[in-house]
């Protein structure tokens, strides 16, 4: 083993442990209550995870919460970013989820047409 090999293994393995650090820059919370799941929240969640993995975003975690109380707008997801208000998206599809990752999380421009609420963190 060379020094570089150790660094390479570390880089790769760090990703696997990302969840356990609790140090993410961005947290995406997908509403996974019964109505959310019925409206397709699971596919949305998978799309988020997949897109983040594809883009190799190290500091973003995806988690889920229960019912948000806005059943008519399900699937719903919130984007929590340090020091910024929380952006709540509604009526999501997997494609929109991918757009949110690209436009909001990577480039910092929220996908306004799907924003249903902006609230204080």
């Amino acid at each position: 083993m060379k020094l570089e090999d150790l660094r390479k293994i570390r880089e790769k393995a760090e990703k696997e442990l990302k969840l356990r650090e609790g140090k993410a820059r961005v947290k995406i919370v997908v509403g996974m209550g019964t109505s959310g799941i019925a409206a397709g929240a699971r596919e949305v969640l998978k799309a988020f995870i997949d897109e983040i993995e594809k883009r190799n975003l190290q500091d973003v975690i995806v988690t889920q919460s229960g019912e948000k109380g806005l059943s008519s707008h399900e699937p719903i997801a919130e984007v929590w970013e340090e020091g910024k208000p929380v952006v709540v998206y509604g009526n999501l599809t997997p494609d929109i989820a991918r757009r949110i990752v690209a436009e909001h999380i990577v480039n910092g421009n929220p996908v306004t047409e799907y924003v249903i609420e902006v609230k204080e963190a």
Binding site: L3, L6, I9, R10, K12, A13, E14, E16, L17, R20
Partner: peptide
């Protein structure tokens, strides 16, 4: 209670063997 003790890569991920290096 944080890493899998049977997986050396998890130990490396938290800076394992960097001190030896």
């Amino acid at each position: 209670g944080k890493i899998d003790p049977e997986n050396i890569e998890e130990y490396i991920a938290v800076g394992g063997y960097e001190a030896l290096a």
